[in-house]
């Protein structure tokens, strides 16, 4: 019978996979997908905690995370399209005009 420890371990694994993708990939789409992966890792721990403490608040948080992920998806995809139109590339290392 899997306990909360196991669920949280899976959650942490997914989160760290997302983190590794976020810092090691150059493709903008990949970075975006890594972030989605991290969000889902956290969502799993919310649901697990909710089940463990027998309180539904974690479900509500997970629900909010999904809503925010949707908003984020919309905005970042629009930005990727715009950036690609302007620069014909989706390599994040090519975008460094914010260099101080």
């Amino acid at each position: 019978m899997p306990g909360i420890t196991h669920y949280l371990t899976v959650s942490a694994l997914l989160f760290f996979l997302g983190l590794a993708g976020f810092i090691s990939r150059k493709n903008m789409f990949m970075i975006f997908l890594s972030v989605e992966l991290m969000l889902n890792g956290i969502n799993l721990s919310f649901v697990a905690f909710s089940r463990f403490f027998q309180a539904l608040d974690g479900h509500v948080f997970a629900f909010f995370v999904i809503a925010i992920a949707a908003a984020e998806a919309g905005i970042s995809l629009a930005m990727i399209i715009l950036l690609y139109k302007n620069r014909q590339t989706i390599d994040v290392d090519r975008f460094n005009i914010m260099k101080g």
């Binding site: 997914l14 990949m30 997908l33 890594s34």
Partner: peptide
């Protein structure tokens, strides 16, 4: 889930990665 996650971050083409996700 974990294998899919690993697959997601290692695909070269974003389409494959998205499907893994």
């Amino acid at each position: 889930a974990v294998l899919g996650g690993f697959s997601t971050i290692t695909r070269r083409h974003p389409l494959s990665a998205a499907l893994s996700l």
